[in-house]
């Protein structure tokens, strides 16, 4: 049942850009943000809210730009290296951030990400300041593609990655390591008494979530063709948390549903009025009031009742 719904949803996503070419960019971006929001959702499982995940998103996108500047020109290599960059940044930041809980964790993430943002904006000679850095079109398995074709490849690649990575994350969340996350949330001390090192559980989760955000950032960098410090701004981090909550943290699809909803809503709202922020905001209030478990709650509730 669940497989069928997923298959249909992915199929619709795959067909949409054929009908409306401009949607391809919006959907690519939505999937990219979905990855990052999934990263946030992983930590939310442990009751940790990170208002700083845009840092990993941006770190990876900047990683792509720097690697491209240094001469690396292959989509696969760039994706792998940039995700590793984000994971590395995540490991470093995670080492001290996972010692904190609740508001302190959220605020410290925010602080670290804003330091990163300031560096990107201030190191004018290195990062190009607020004008950012270009991300050129890379070769795909040695073949240089034209712009429209590359963007199509990128879109379907992200779609495939969404499925593969989604499945992998689901396996991770259903593994003992994943279940330990919710245990951290409910009773951390008991977990320690059971002989499970909380710091290892959290560090792994933190690195995984940073890598996920990094994957999203790399895709977004390729799709947009330019990296700007705004990628790392705290509003971008807030945006990711919003997507995660909106979609629901009950399951992996939640993050992607939330991202698709928010991106499509944004696209629709800006065509209507200058006050697009108002429409987006009002819709969010409505969704959060009436769907406290996010969009994913719609599906999971159904599952539960059929038991």
């Amino acid at each position: 049942m669940r497989t069928i719904v997923t298959a249909v949803a992915v199929l619709i996503l795959a067909v949409l850009p054929v009908a409306a070419p401009w949607l391809q960019f919006v959907l690519t971006l939505a999937i990219a943000k979905g990855f990052a929001a999934l990263g946030v959702a992983v930590l939310l499982r442990a009751g940790l809210i990170s208002i700083g995940h845009a840092m990993f998103f941006a770190a990876s996108a900047y990683g792509v730009a720097f690697l491209a500047r240094a001469g690396v020109n292959d989509l696969g290599l760039l994706l792998i290296f940039s995700v590793l960059t984000a994971a590395l940044v995540g490991a470093i930041a995670g080492l001290f951030l996972i010692r904190y809980r609740a508001i302190f964790f959220a605020m410290l993430n925010l602080a670290v990400s804003m330091v990163f943002y300031a560096l990107c904006a201030k190191l004018y000679g290195v990062t190009g300041g607020t004008d950012g850095m270009p991300v050129p079109i890379p070769a795909v398995f040695g073949i240089m593609l034209g712009e429209p074709l590359f963007k199509t490849v990128l879109f379907y690649l992200s779609l495939v990655l969404m499925l593969l990575v989604g499945l992998a994350v689901q396996r991770y969340l259903n593994s003992p390591l994943g279940h330990a996350l919710s245990a951290v949330h409910s009773n951390e001390i008991r977990l320690e008494y059971l002989g499970i090192p909380v710091w290892a559980v959290l560090l792994i989760a933190y690195v995984v979530s940073a890598a996920l955000a990094g994957l999203g950032g790399a895709i977004a960098g390729f799709a947009i063709g330019r990296v700007v410090p705004d990628f790392a701004f705290w509003t971008a981090s807030g945006h990711l948390v919003l997507i995660a909550v909106l979609g629901g943290i009950g399951g992996v699809p939640g993050a992607f549903i939330g991202a698709l909803f928010l991106e499509l809503l944004h696209s629709a709202a800006v065509t209507v009025t200058d006050a697009w922020n108002l429409i987006v905001g009002l819709t969010l209030i409505v969704v959060i009031m009436f769907l406290p478990q996010g969009f994913y709650g719609l599906f999971s509730r159904k599952e539960a009742s059929s038991l």
Partner: peptide, 12 residues
């Protein structure tokens, strides 16, 4: 809206 939104609108 920032670069992302502007690019989406431009494409549309």
């Amino acid at each position: 809206q920032g670069a992302q939104g502007v690019i989406a609108e431009y494409r549309r």
